[in-house]
Design a protein around this nucleic acid. Structure first.
Lengths: 259, 259
DNA sequence: TCAATATTCTCATTTTTTGAGAATTGGTTT
DNA sequence: AAACCAATTCTCAAAAAATGAGAATATTGA
């Protein structure tokens, strides 16, 4: 392993529990000489991807916070959808969390979330956390709209496509037809998920807007109301995206090409 | 330029206005052959730092959102301070924004912010935005507690240390003595900043907790009350840091060293 | 100040990256 | 369905950069 892979390998050492590393520890963990790791770390620090904390301990650096802000500010989906999330949690009139999630390379990730004022629970889904592809309303409604070829790639080798796979594909087709997906206790026990698709192919966006609420507090009428709320919010976001997104990208590219 | 610098150069192309790039455009802008940029971009996409949007346009990728969440969850300063921010905006009883900011390599950056319920304005300072080192209460209170050697490095070559430099150093010494810094209209016209230091040397943390409010709505009594609020909140955060931070780091490092 | 440890440096060797253009892919248009 | 166009990957020899072991040097805390 060398080149860019070395940098990735160092960054991948950091996770929820191991969030501070010394160079000798990295060297051990990666099986790479210390002098090489020192050089790699020096580059990463210079780029802001790591920072030297006290006592020769390194932590993730400010570049991630900075680029994350850039994404928040410039991602068309986030800017088109943030207002909708706010409206949805306000109009839900029940403790809940609204999420905007999207397919990103080959994982589903929440890119924006907002909780209603008095919401005690927090769903597993939250901004920046990769989510399972095939579980939860949020993900399934996305998967239901992935083009077939891409779906095949995501679901893995044909070998693994056994009986379960057929059932999933039927479920996805059904979701696509209905235009929404509602589940309960599929990710978090006791929580219900309601999701609707936000599809703007021209912009490469395959996303979902979803609502997570306490399942035990939902009667049938309530549920139907929330589904309507989510579906209409999602289509508003898609419409906003279609109208706001395309011109900027074209402008931008042209400017740069000319320059 | 080559190696890691190539990756940095590509990522640095992305900013507030240029948030979507085609490979030919990058190739032009960097003066590097397209085939090389294609390889670089492929690596960055594989690492999640870029994503292929529609129409051969690339945007910043999900890795930044993911690592940002990791930072939010594991940064001792953020976890020790988030609650304090919430308390401060609640107890301020006036529209305001509370910030937690820190020295990060050689820039000051806000790492957490919270606005009071009915706050109409938003200060320039916000999570993820690099801030000037020598302007604004938030930054100056941090600079006032940077060790001399490091301060010299930050302020630049001795040549540049002219008359202004002396004044700044006197001001910083004064801030250090008082234990807080209050300014008005130094960053945003009409807004006042009140900041207190959060210093935990054992943890390599040099940070500040600050409050931004509408300057025209502050009388002397109000201002004094807010200063007290900020100073005490900051010292609570420092105390929490001292007690919560150190053991985890040691454990962590040891685990990894053993493994 | 001194000792201990972290970090950088050195340099010959190995390994990767580079760049130009050809080949291929993927998606539209006719 | 074929042809077209642009985007992307591939090929290969030359050039550049990364590597690793240990020596040299900085930093830091007592």
């Amino acid at each position: 392993m060398a080149g860019f892979a070395r940098f990735l390998a160092v960054l991948r050492l950091f996770d929820d529990t191991a969030n501070a590393w010394t160079v000798p520890a990295m060297s051990d963990a990666l099986g790479v000489p210390a002098s090489t790791v020192y050089r790699t770390v020096r580059d990463l620090v210079a780029g802001g991807f790591l920072e030297a904390a006290h006592e020769s301990v390194y932590r993730l650096g400010p570049a991630f916070i900075e680029y994350d802000r850039l994404l928040r500010l410039t991602d068309p989906l986030v800017s088109a959808g943030r207002g909708a999330l706010h409206d949805v949690v306000a109009q839900a009139r029940t403790p809940c969390v609204a999420l905007l999630s999207r397919l990103y390379n080959d994982q589903v990730m929440c890119v924006a979330d907002e909780a209603a004022r008095d919401t005690a629970f927090r769903p597993s889904y939250e901004r920046g956390r990769p989510m399972p592809l095939t579980q939860g309303a949020t993900s399934k409604v996305i998967l239901a709209h992935v083009p077939t070829r891409q779906l095949n790639r995501l679901l893995g080798a044909p070998k693994e496509r056994d009986n379960r796979d057929g059932a999933l594909r039927r479920e996805l087709a059904d979701i696509r037809k209905r235009g929404f997906c509602a589940t309960a206790s599929e990710i978090d026990a006791g929580l219900a998920g309601i999701a609707a698709p936000v599809i703007v192919r021209e912009a490469g966006v395959i996303a979902s807007l979803s609502l997570v609420a306490d399942d035990t507090q939902l009667d049938e009428a309530q549920r139907r109301r929330l589904i309507l709320l989510v579906v209409s919010a999602a289509s508003l976001v898609a419409e906003a995206l279609r109208h706001a997104l395309q011109p900027p990208i074209l402008n931008d590219t042209r400017q740069r090409l000319v320059k």
